[in-house]
Simulated scan of single mutants.
Amino acid sequence: MKIIIAPDSFKGSLTAKEAAEAIERGLRRSPLKAETVLVPMADGGEGTVQSLVDATGGHMIQAQVTGPLGQSVMASYGILGDGRTAAIEMAAASGIQFVNEQTRDPLVTTTYGTGELIVKALDQGAQEIIVGLGGSATNDGGAGMAQALGARLLDADGHELTQGGAALARLDRIDISGLDPRLASTRIRLASDVTNPLTGPEGASAVFGPQKGADPSMVATLDAALAHYAAVIRKDLHREVETKPGAGAAGGLGAGFLAFTPAVMASGVNIVVETTHLKELARGADLCFTGEGGIDFQTGFGKTPMGTAQAVKESSPGCKVIALAGNVGAGTEELYKVGIDAIFSISPGAVSLEDAMTKAADNLAAVAENIGRLLA
Protein backbone atom coordinates (compact mmCIF):
# COMPACT_ATOMS: atom_id res chain seq x y z
CA MET A 1 0.00 0.00 0.00
CA LYS A 2 1.23 3.49 -0.88
CA ILE A 3 0.07 6.39 1.32
CA ILE A 4 0.52 10.08 0.57
CA ILE A 5 0.60 12.27 3.68
CA ALA A 6 -0.08 15.85 2.58
CA PRO A 7 -1.56 18.10 5.28
CA ASP A 8 -1.47 21.87 5.66
CA SER A 9 -0.21 23.42 8.89
CA PHE A 10 -2.39 23.33 12.00
CA LYS A 11 -2.28 27.06 12.71
CA GLY A 12 -0.69 27.90 16.03
CA SER A 13 0.25 24.28 16.70
CA LEU A 14 2.12 22.47 13.93
CA THR A 15 3.84 23.25 10.67
CA ALA A 16 2.69 21.18 7.72
CA LYS A 17 5.85 19.08 8.01
CA GLU A 18 5.27 18.45 11.71
CA ALA A 19 1.66 17.47 11.01
CA ALA A 20 2.77 15.05 8.31
CA GLU A 21 5.35 13.50 10.62
CA ALA A 22 2.75 13.05 13.36
CA ILE A 23 0.38 11.26 10.97
CA GLU A 24 3.20 9.01 9.78
CA ARG A 25 4.20 8.27 13.38
CA GLY A 26 0.68 7.13 14.19
CA LEU A 27 0.46 4.91 11.11
CA ARG A 28 3.78 3.30 12.03
CA ARG A 29 2.34 2.33 15.41
CA SER A 30 -0.44 0.40 13.68
CA PRO A 31 -0.08 -3.04 12.03
CA LEU A 32 -0.66 -1.46 8.61
CA LYS A 33 2.20 -2.11 6.21
CA ALA A 34 2.63 0.77 3.80
CA GLU A 35 5.05 2.98 1.93
CA THR A 36 4.54 6.57 3.10
CA VAL A 37 5.39 9.72 1.14
CA LEU A 38 5.33 13.02 3.06
CA VAL A 39 4.41 16.17 1.11
CA PRO A 40 3.86 19.25 3.33
CA MET A 41 1.15 21.41 1.74
CA ALA A 42 -0.31 24.94 1.88
CA ASP A 43 -2.70 27.16 -0.07
CA GLY A 44 -0.90 30.49 -0.21
CA GLY A 45 -1.79 31.62 3.30
CA GLU A 46 0.28 31.64 6.46
CA GLY A 47 2.85 28.83 6.49
CA THR A 48 3.14 28.53 2.71
CA VAL A 49 6.82 29.48 2.61
CA GLN A 50 7.74 27.01 5.36
CA SER A 51 5.75 24.24 3.65
CA LEU A 52 7.45 24.83 0.31
CA VAL A 53 10.88 24.96 1.93
CA ASP A 54 10.22 21.74 3.87
CA ALA A 55 8.75 19.92 0.86
CA THR A 56 11.64 20.79 -1.45
CA GLY A 57 14.58 20.60 0.94
CA GLY A 58 15.23 24.33 0.79
CA HIS A 59 16.29 26.78 3.47
CA MET A 60 15.06 29.93 5.17
CA ILE A 61 16.87 33.28 5.14
CA GLN A 62 16.35 36.12 7.60
CA ALA A 63 16.61 39.75 6.56
CA GLN A 64 16.21 43.16 8.16
CA VAL A 65 13.60 45.15 6.24
CA THR A 66 11.15 48.02 6.63
CA GLY A 67 7.95 47.20 8.50
CA PRO A 68 4.50 48.57 7.67
CA LEU A 69 4.96 51.62 9.91
CA GLY A 70 8.47 52.36 8.65
CA GLN A 71 10.14 50.57 11.55
CA SER A 72 12.93 48.03 11.14
CA VAL A 73 11.69 44.43 11.38
CA MET A 74 13.22 40.99 10.95
CA ALA A 75 11.55 38.97 8.19
CA SER A 76 12.15 35.54 6.69
CA TYR A 77 11.84 34.20 3.17
CA GLY A 78 12.68 30.86 1.60
CA ILE A 79 14.96 29.57 -1.12
CA LEU A 80 13.51 26.29 -2.36
CA GLY A 81 15.46 23.11 -3.01
CA ASP A 82 16.05 23.91 -6.68
CA GLY A 83 18.17 26.91 -5.63
CA ARG A 84 16.46 29.16 -8.18
CA THR A 85 13.01 29.70 -6.68
CA ALA A 86 12.29 32.05 -3.78
CA ALA A 87 9.13 31.99 -1.70
CA ILE A 88 7.95 35.11 0.09
CA GLU A 89 4.95 35.85 2.29
CA MET A 90 4.18 39.55 2.11
CA ALA A 91 3.00 39.36 5.72
CA ALA A 92 6.55 38.51 6.79
CA ALA A 93 7.52 42.13 6.10
CA SER A 94 4.21 44.03 5.87
CA GLY A 95 1.87 41.95 8.01
CA ILE A 96 -0.78 42.96 10.46
CA GLN A 97 1.21 41.38 13.31
CA PHE A 98 3.47 44.45 13.24
CA VAL A 99 0.67 46.81 14.30
CA ASN A 100 -1.82 46.87 17.15
CA GLU A 101 -5.14 48.57 17.97
CA GLN A 102 -3.34 51.83 18.70
CA THR A 103 -0.83 51.90 15.83
CA ARG A 104 -2.71 50.38 12.89
CA ASP A 105 -3.39 53.01 10.22
CA PRO A 106 -3.95 51.98 6.58
CA LEU A 107 -3.56 55.62 5.53
CA VAL A 108 0.19 55.41 6.20
CA THR A 109 1.21 51.73 6.30
CA THR A 110 3.53 50.60 3.52
CA THR A 111 4.56 47.51 1.54
CA TYR A 112 8.11 48.85 1.16
CA GLY A 113 9.53 45.93 3.14
CA THR A 114 7.92 43.41 0.79
CA GLY A 115 9.76 45.08 -2.09
CA GLU A 116 12.98 44.85 -0.09
CA LEU A 117 12.46 41.09 0.33
CA ILE A 118 12.04 40.74 -3.44
CA VAL A 119 15.32 42.60 -4.01
CA LYS A 120 17.08 40.36 -1.50
CA ALA A 121 15.69 37.25 -3.23
CA LEU A 122 16.97 38.55 -6.57
CA ASP A 123 20.35 39.18 -4.94
CA GLN A 124 20.35 35.49 -3.95
CA GLY A 125 19.99 34.59 -7.63
CA ALA A 126 16.27 33.81 -7.66
CA GLN A 127 14.90 33.40 -11.17
CA GLU A 128 11.39 32.64 -9.98
CA ILE A 129 9.52 34.10 -7.02
CA ILE A 130 6.33 32.81 -5.40
CA VAL A 131 4.57 35.46 -3.32
CA GLY A 132 1.86 34.66 -0.80
CA LEU A 133 -0.62 37.53 -0.54
CA GLY A 134 -2.56 37.91 2.68
CA GLY A 135 -2.38 39.04 6.28
CA SER A 136 -1.38 42.58 5.33
CA ALA A 137 -1.47 45.72 7.46
CA THR A 138 -1.39 47.84 4.31
CA ASN A 139 -3.68 49.53 1.80
CA ASP A 140 -1.13 51.24 -0.45
CA GLY A 141 -1.77 49.34 -3.69
CA GLY A 142 1.78 47.99 -3.61
CA ALA A 143 3.17 51.50 -4.07
CA GLY A 144 5.75 51.04 -1.32
CA MET A 145 6.87 47.77 -2.89
CA ALA A 146 7.26 49.50 -6.25
CA GLN A 147 9.39 52.24 -4.68
CA ALA A 148 11.65 49.63 -3.08
CA LEU A 149 12.05 48.03 -6.51
CA GLY A 150 13.23 51.31 -8.01
CA ALA A 151 10.06 52.95 -9.32
CA ARG A 152 9.55 56.65 -8.60
CA LEU A 153 6.07 57.87 -7.69
CA LEU A 154 6.08 61.63 -8.10
CA ASP A 155 3.70 64.43 -7.16
CA ALA A 156 3.01 67.50 -9.31
CA ASP A 157 6.18 69.20 -7.99
CA GLY A 158 8.35 66.21 -8.89
CA HIS A 159 8.78 65.10 -5.29
CA GLU A 160 8.69 61.42 -4.28
CA LEU A 161 5.46 60.44 -2.55
CA THR A 162 5.54 59.65 1.14
CA GLN A 163 4.53 56.17 2.27
CA GLY A 164 0.95 54.94 2.64
CA GLY A 165 -2.29 54.64 0.75
CA ALA A 166 -3.51 58.19 1.38
CA ALA A 167 -0.46 59.70 -0.32
CA LEU A 168 -1.54 58.14 -3.64
CA ALA A 169 -4.13 60.90 -4.02
CA ARG A 170 -1.20 63.26 -4.80
CA LEU A 171 0.35 61.01 -7.44
CA ASP A 172 1.01 62.87 -10.69
CA ARG A 173 3.32 60.60 -12.67
CA ILE A 174 5.26 57.34 -12.46
CA ASP A 175 8.90 56.94 -13.54
CA ILE A 176 10.05 53.33 -13.96
CA SER A 177 13.42 54.09 -15.56
CA GLY A 178 15.12 52.97 -12.34
CA LEU A 179 13.05 49.80 -11.86
CA ASP A 180 15.22 46.78 -11.11
CA PRO A 181 16.00 45.33 -14.57
CA ARG A 182 16.14 41.78 -13.20
CA LEU A 183 12.36 41.81 -12.77
CA ALA A 184 11.80 41.58 -16.53
CA SER A 185 13.32 38.10 -16.69
CA THR A 186 11.91 36.82 -13.37
CA ARG A 187 8.86 34.61 -13.20
CA ILE A 188 6.60 35.89 -10.42
CA ARG A 189 3.50 34.02 -9.31
CA LEU A 190 1.05 35.45 -6.82
CA ALA A 191 -0.50 32.85 -4.53
CA SER A 192 -3.94 34.12 -3.59
CA ASP A 193 -7.53 33.00 -3.77
CA VAL A 194 -8.83 36.56 -3.31
CA THR A 195 -10.64 37.76 -6.45
CA ASN A 196 -11.54 41.29 -5.29
CA PRO A 197 -10.82 44.17 -7.68
CA LEU A 198 -8.73 47.13 -6.57
CA THR A 199 -11.57 49.63 -5.99
CA GLY A 200 -15.30 49.89 -5.46
CA PRO A 201 -17.66 48.19 -3.01
CA GLU A 202 -15.82 44.87 -3.44
CA GLY A 203 -12.39 46.50 -3.55
CA ALA A 204 -9.41 46.45 -1.21
CA SER A 205 -10.42 49.47 0.88
CA ALA A 206 -14.11 48.64 1.34
CA VAL A 207 -13.72 44.94 2.07
CA PHE A 208 -10.39 44.69 3.87
CA GLY A 209 -9.78 48.25 5.09
CA PRO A 210 -11.94 47.98 8.24
CA GLN A 211 -9.89 44.98 9.41
CA LYS A 212 -6.85 47.25 9.31
CA GLY A 213 -8.41 50.10 11.26
CA ALA A 214 -10.18 52.10 8.54
CA ASP A 215 -13.40 53.85 9.52
CA PRO A 216 -15.96 54.76 6.79
CA SER A 217 -14.27 58.12 6.11
CA MET A 218 -10.86 56.47 5.75
CA VAL A 219 -12.32 53.80 3.47
CA ALA A 220 -13.64 56.52 1.15
CA THR A 221 -10.29 58.33 1.19
CA LEU A 222 -8.33 55.18 0.44
CA ASP A 223 -10.69 53.99 -2.29
CA ALA A 224 -10.47 57.34 -4.07
CA ALA A 225 -6.67 57.34 -3.74
CA LEU A 226 -6.43 53.83 -5.23
CA ALA A 227 -8.74 54.81 -8.09
CA HIS A 228 -6.46 57.77 -8.86
CA TYR A 229 -3.40 55.50 -8.59
CA ALA A 230 -4.95 53.09 -11.10
CA ALA A 231 -5.67 55.99 -13.47
CA VAL A 232 -2.03 57.14 -13.40
CA ILE A 233 -0.86 53.54 -13.93
CA ARG A 234 -3.19 53.39 -16.92
CA LYS A 235 -1.78 56.68 -18.28
CA ASP A 236 1.93 56.12 -17.66
CA LEU A 237 2.38 52.32 -17.72
CA HIS A 238 -0.46 51.44 -20.09
CA ARG A 239 -1.68 48.68 -17.80
CA GLU A 240 -5.22 48.17 -16.57
CA VAL A 241 -5.20 46.99 -12.97
CA GLU A 242 -8.27 48.53 -11.35
CA THR A 243 -10.77 45.85 -12.29
CA LYS A 244 -8.48 42.82 -12.50
CA PRO A 245 -9.60 39.93 -10.27
CA GLY A 246 -7.21 39.69 -7.35
CA ALA A 247 -5.91 43.25 -7.73
CA GLY A 248 -7.40 44.07 -4.33
CA ALA A 249 -5.52 41.30 -2.52
CA ALA A 250 -3.34 42.39 0.41
CA GLY A 251 -4.54 45.99 0.34
CA GLY A 252 -4.07 46.30 -3.40
CA LEU A 253 -0.63 44.71 -3.47
CA GLY A 254 -1.96 42.46 -6.22
CA ALA A 255 -2.46 45.57 -8.38
CA GLY A 256 1.06 46.76 -7.61
CA PHE A 257 2.55 43.48 -8.79
CA LEU A 258 0.42 43.48 -11.93
CA ALA A 259 1.45 47.09 -12.69
CA PHE A 260 5.19 46.99 -12.04
CA THR A 261 6.26 43.36 -12.57
CA PRO A 262 5.49 40.47 -14.94
CA ALA A 263 3.54 38.73 -12.16
CA VAL A 264 0.54 36.50 -12.76
CA MET A 265 -2.22 35.51 -10.35
CA ALA A 266 -2.67 31.83 -9.54
CA SER A 267 -4.49 29.62 -7.05
CA GLY A 268 -2.32 29.24 -3.98
CA VAL A 269 -2.92 25.53 -3.57
CA ASN A 270 -2.28 24.91 -7.28
CA ILE A 271 1.10 26.63 -7.02
CA VAL A 272 2.01 24.41 -4.06
CA VAL A 273 0.78 21.27 -5.88
CA GLU A 274 3.00 22.13 -8.83
CA THR A 275 6.05 23.13 -6.79
CA THR A 276 5.96 20.04 -4.56
CA HIS A 277 5.30 17.71 -7.54
CA LEU A 278 2.38 16.26 -5.61
CA LYS A 279 0.71 14.76 -8.69
CA GLU A 280 3.87 12.90 -9.70
CA LEU A 281 4.46 11.65 -6.15
CA ALA A 282 0.85 10.47 -5.88
CA ARG A 283 0.99 8.12 -8.86
CA GLY A 284 -0.04 4.66 -7.72
CA ALA A 285 -1.20 5.88 -4.31
CA ASP A 286 -3.91 3.91 -2.53
CA LEU A 287 -4.60 6.36 0.28
CA CYS A 288 -3.99 10.03 1.04
CA PHE A 289 -4.09 11.80 4.39
CA THR A 290 -4.58 15.56 4.31
CA GLY A 291 -5.99 18.11 6.75
CA GLU A 292 -5.55 21.39 8.60
CA GLY A 293 -6.59 23.03 11.86
CA GLY A 294 -10.20 23.55 10.86
CA ILE A 295 -12.35 22.07 8.11
CA ASP A 296 -15.81 23.32 7.13
CA PHE A 297 -17.78 24.40 4.06
CA GLN A 298 -15.12 27.02 3.24
CA THR A 299 -12.64 24.24 2.57
CA GLY A 300 -14.49 23.67 -0.69
CA PHE A 301 -13.46 27.14 -1.93
CA GLY A 302 -9.93 26.06 -2.81
CA LYS A 303 -8.29 25.40 0.53
CA THR A 304 -5.56 22.81 0.99
CA PRO A 305 -7.58 19.63 1.73
CA MET A 306 -9.77 20.07 -1.34
CA GLY A 307 -6.90 21.05 -3.63
CA THR A 308 -4.84 18.13 -2.36
CA ALA A 309 -7.69 15.67 -2.84
CA GLN A 310 -8.32 16.77 -6.40
CA ALA A 311 -4.63 16.70 -7.35
CA VAL A 312 -4.09 13.23 -5.89
CA LYS A 313 -7.19 11.80 -7.58
CA GLU A 314 -6.10 13.25 -10.90
CA SER A 315 -3.01 11.05 -10.68
CA SER A 316 -4.62 8.08 -8.94
CA PRO A 317 -8.42 8.07 -9.43
CA GLY A 318 -8.90 5.12 -7.07
CA CYS A 319 -7.04 6.76 -4.19
CA LYS A 320 -9.15 7.40 -1.09
CA VAL A 321 -8.62 10.73 0.68
CA ILE A 322 -8.96 11.10 4.45
CA ALA A 323 -8.98 14.58 5.99
CA LEU A 324 -8.04 15.20 9.62
CA ALA A 325 -8.81 18.43 11.49
CA GLY A 326 -8.69 19.90 14.96
CA ASN A 327 -12.17 21.29 14.41
CA VAL A 328 -14.80 19.95 12.00
CA GLY A 329 -17.37 22.66 11.31
CA ALA A 330 -20.63 23.00 9.43
CA GLY A 331 -21.19 22.06 5.82
CA THR A 332 -18.54 19.38 5.53
CA GLU A 333 -20.95 17.05 3.71
CA GLU A 334 -20.35 19.19 0.62
CA LEU A 335 -16.69 18.16 0.64
CA TYR A 336 -17.59 14.58 -0.21
CA LYS A 337 -18.58 15.90 -3.63
CA VAL A 338 -15.17 17.44 -4.35
CA GLY A 339 -12.80 14.56 -3.66
CA ILE A 340 -12.62 14.00 0.09
CA ASP A 341 -13.87 10.56 1.14
CA ALA A 342 -13.84 10.81 4.95
CA ILE A 343 -13.29 13.49 7.59
CA PHE A 344 -12.17 12.90 11.18
CA SER A 345 -11.73 15.26 14.09
CA ILE A 346 -8.54 14.68 16.06
CA SER A 347 -10.06 16.07 19.26
CA PRO A 348 -10.17 13.38 21.99
CA GLY A 349 -13.19 15.02 23.63
CA ALA A 350 -14.12 18.21 25.42
CA VAL A 351 -10.77 19.92 26.02
CA SER A 352 -9.58 23.49 26.32
CA LEU A 353 -8.25 25.25 23.23
CA GLU A 354 -4.84 25.41 24.89
CA ASP A 355 -4.78 21.64 25.45
CA ALA A 356 -5.99 20.96 21.92
CA MET A 357 -3.23 23.07 20.43
CA THR A 358 -0.50 21.83 22.77
CA LYS A 359 -1.32 18.18 22.13
CA ALA A 360 -2.13 18.46 18.42
CA ALA A 361 0.75 16.20 17.34
CA ASP A 362 -0.20 13.47 19.82
CA ASN A 363 -3.87 13.71 18.85
CA LEU A 364 -3.04 13.51 15.13
CA ALA A 365 -0.87 10.47 15.70
CA ALA A 366 -3.53 8.74 17.80
CA VAL A 367 -6.25 9.15 15.16
CA ALA A 368 -3.88 8.08 12.37
CA GLU A 369 -2.95 4.99 14.38
CA ASN A 370 -6.59 4.03 14.86
CA ILE A 371 -7.34 4.51 11.16
CA GLY A 372 -4.29 2.38 10.36
CA ARG A 373 -5.50 -0.36 12.68
CA LEU A 374 -8.92 -0.31 11.04
CA LEU A 375 -7.41 -0.56 7.57
CA ALA A 376 -5.05 -3.33 8.65
Rank of each mutant, 00 (worst) to 15 (best):
I271A: 00
A214M: 07
V273L: 05
F289S: 04
A259E: 09
E292N: 04
S185A: 10
A206P: 12
T308Y: 04
A285M: 05
A282F: 10
G246F: 06
P181L: 05
A214S: 09
T261I: 07
R283H: 14
G293T: 04
T304G: 02
G300M: 03
S177D: 08
G300V: 02
G256N: 02
Q298Y: 03
G252P: 09
A191C: 05
G164K: 09
A169C: 13
V269W: 00
R234D: 06
S205M: 13
G200W: 02
K279E: 03
T199C: 13
E240F: 11
I188K: 06
F208G: 06
A231S: 13
D172Y: 14
D223E: 09
I295G: 04
V264D: 06
P201T: 13
G248V: 05
L179A: 12
R189I: 07
A206W: 14
S192W: 01
G246Y: 04
D172A: 15
R170W: 15
A220V: 11
H228S: 04
F257Y: 08
V272Y: 00
S217F: 15
G246Q: 10
G307H: 00
T195N: 08
L179K: 11
R173K: 08
S267Q: 01
Y229K: 11
T243I: 14
S267T: 00
L237I: 04
P201L: 12
G252E: 07
V273G: 12
M265P: 03
G302P: 06
G165F: 15
A247G: 06
A169V: 15
G256L: 02
H277C: 15
Q211C: 13
D215G: 15
G246S: 08
G254L: 03
R239I: 07
S192Y: 01
K303F: 00
Q211L: 15
M306K: 11
